[in-house]
Write a protein that binds this DNA or RNA. Structure first.
Length: 596
RNA sequence: UGCCCGAUGGUGUAAUGGUAGCACAAACGACUCUGACUCGUUUUGUCUAGGUUCGAGUCCUAGUCGGGCAGCCA
């Protein structure tokens, strides 16, 4: 069954960034709209990143443009190829079937060739579609070009080598309300700076002994204009660039130039970079580049209630063993969400429905849950499964006899398909669906009461069998076969309908019942956020599934009727040993009195 | 404290000087072989004070409140 992605047909969203892009398109300012998604490969992508990914790829998609996936890998000490691979995988999963045609990679191993335009360096790497011979863009591929730009700034007297230690640099920088003071090395000659910078590159100096700085204004009210560092010395090999370098550009210098080199037109980032924008513009305009420079736009990142997104905290959860890894289904990472069974389309819909603004807000997790249920309701086949089985013996059905029943795969389908399930003398029902002393308005099974077994018939509970200790052993009852679906009394109404499986025509399986990882709406607001961890975020049960579920494939999603949506775990499922993850429960409007 | 950014129901957003709308949540009701889905009804909002204007959520001024910035992190 194929379900059209609802977001494929949805009208393009509108926000202040898209308004700007639309205007630029109208005035034909650029030959093509080019955006980029630039994660640093130092952790896994999370749902917050989905907002940025959908914004950048969405804009490319809506304007027949392209979006580059670029590793912002300028700090080798924090990064790793493990993260590069995970990021590529997650991005491709998120945009598959939606904006994958806008995803631009580069030929594997390619490094931009230096050319000269108007006597100035100009490196432009033409993008290629994803293929086995392609890889994402890497800022580290531009190190040679970025170095050349640094040399140009030095020659223009706009950058200098500074010998101040990190601590001294901090002191000289001043404070937001107090101007900084000039470095004593600020007025070195061009020749001296050129010599020193090349010796930095050659590895003559130890880490942090010198740095390359932009020469702007130490009294600027904007901290980022007070002679910011452009290059630092780090005698560390790089996961992508190898051991070629011992000087690495900092974010502010590398990012704007990477954007420029890739032909990015709209460089979209989060609001903490707003104060960096004057520096972004200063660098690009100082270089007097032949092509029109990109511009930076900022938006507020996604904050979701009941979850944390900061890499620091997510890393802590992984390292402390609070979860089983970056892809633990409880993690808000894309890898975790995927394993939990969240469809990529739900993430995309969340990303667009929260809007794009300049003020930070907290999105209620209930909105996300609503979207997930809506996607799954349309797409997931229904199955019967009993999480916590209790036995019900239907005494009027002889042992060995099979009553054939027909069940609908998904009533939401236009032409629903059906399957057969077997009703036998012994069935399992949900322990929640029987109450010896029922609360008011209890529609389910009680002694002497009746319920309908979904897709089968109405049954009555005649007897409650207990052991010597008073614990429930089994229920005994009778089936009214005349009320079978399609039977003469099929229309007979009873208040409750419950799910069930045949005792011997069902299979046992591990089912992991996941719940929110945190118990409070804003766990991240508390430095000691781990005390808000939900002790019941995972409960594992051995459930009984209807026989047809044996054929479930890893990653497949089902609705277990009346319970929720469940996905066959792609990592721990084995042939004959399926593991299901509860993606999300069904909405449940019934409130048992007294919390029963 | 200096600079920058922002403020619309409980929550997230729309309205681009002209009827404050949508979604989520909540409550109630209808339907129901999923207490799901679907459908119907209801509740709740333009931070404050001035100004411009025939008309202000929108423009201006001041204030209040919130966020961001002082890594050789990104």
């Amino acid at each position: 069954m194929t379900v059209e992605h609802p977001d494929a047909a949805a009208p393009a969203p509108s926000d202040f960034i898209r308004d700007v892009v639309a205007q630029h398109v109208a005035e034909k300012r650029y030959p093509k709209i080019v955006t980029r998604f630039p994660p640093e490969p130092n952790g896994y992508l999370h749902i917050g990143h989905a907002k940025s990914i959908c914004l950048n790829f969405g804009i490319a998609r809506e304007n027949q443009g392209q979006c580059n996936l670029r590793m912002d890998d300028t700090n080798p000490v924090k990064e790793d190829v493990e993260y590069v691979d995970a990021i590529v995988n997650d991005v491709r999963w998120l945009i598959d079937g939606w904006a994958d045609h806008c995803l631009s990679f580069k030929p594997k191993g390619a490094v931009p060739a230096a050319t000269t335009v108007d006597g100035r360096p100009d490196h432009y790497l033409a993008p290629v579609p994803f293929s086995p011979a392609a890889e994402p863009f890497f800022a580290s591929d531009y190190f040679e070009a970025i170095h050349d730009f640094a040399v140009q700034l030095i020659k223009q007297g706009q950058a200098y080598v500074c010998d101040l230690s990190p601590k001294e640099t901090e002191e000289y920088r001043g404070a937001p309300d107090r101007p900084g003071k000039d470095s004593p090395y600020r007025n070195r000659t061009v020749a001296e700076n050129l010599d020193l910078f090349e010796r930095m590159r050659a590895g003559e100096f130890p880490d942090a002994a010198r740095s390359l700085r932009a020469r702007i204004d130490m009294a600027s009210p904007n901290i980022w204009l007070r002679d910011p560092l452009l290059y630092r010395i780090r005698h560390t090999a790089h996961h992508h660039a190898g051991d070629k370098w011992c000087i690495y550009p900092l974010y502010d210098f590398a990012h704007c130039l990477s954007d420029y080199l890739e032909g990015v037109t709209h460089s979209i980032c989060t609001i903490e970079f707003e104060v960096h924008r004057p520096l972004y513009d200063w660098i690009l305009s100082s270089l007097r580049l032949p092509r029109p420079p990109p511009h930076q736009y900022e938006f507020a990142k996604l904050v979701l209630s009941y979850t944390v997104f900061s890499k620091r905290r997510l890393l802590q959860l992984v390292q402390d063993g609070a979860v089983a890894g970056w892809d633990d289904p409880r993690m808000p990472t894309l890898a975790g969400a995927r394993r939990l069974g969240i469809p990529a389309s739900a993430l995309r819909r969340l990303a667009t429905s929260v809007g794009v603004t300049k003020y930070e807000s907290v999105t209620d997790i209930a909105l996300f849950e609503h979207i997930v249920r809506e996607e799954l309701n349309a797409a997931a086949r229904r199955r019967l499964a009993v999480l916590r089985p209790i036995k019900l013996v239907l005494t009027n059905i002889p042992a060995g006899e099979v009553v054939d029943c027909e069940a609908v795969d998904n009533p939401q389908d236009e032409t629903p398909t059906k399957r057969r399930i077997a009703l036998t003398r012994e069935v399992f029902i949900e322990s929640d669906d029987f109450a010896e002393v029922p609360p008011p308005k209890y529609f389910r099974l009680k002694p002497g009461g009746e319920v309908r077994l979904k897709y089968a018939c109405i049954v009555r509970c005649d007897e409650v069998v207990k052991d010597a200790a008073g614990a429930l052993v089994e229920l005994r009852g009778t089936a009214d076969l005349t009320t079978r679906t399609g039977g003469p009394n099929a229309d007979r109404k009873v208040k409750g309908t419950i799910h069930w499986v045949s005792a011997d025509r069902s299979v046992a399986a591990e089912v992991r019942l996941y719940d929110r990882l945190f118990t409070v709406a804003e766990p991240g607001a508390d430095e000691d956020f781990k005390r808000h961890l939900n002790p019941r975020s995972l409960e594992t049960v051995t459930a009984r599934l209807e026989a047809s579920l044996q054929e479930a494939r890893p990653g497949e999603r089902y609705q277990f009727e009346r319970l929720g949506y469940f996905t066959a775990d792609a990592k721990d499922s084995r042939p004959g040993g399926l593991v299901f993850n509860r993606t999300i429960t069904l909405k449940d409007a019934w409130k048992a009195p007294g919390g029963a």
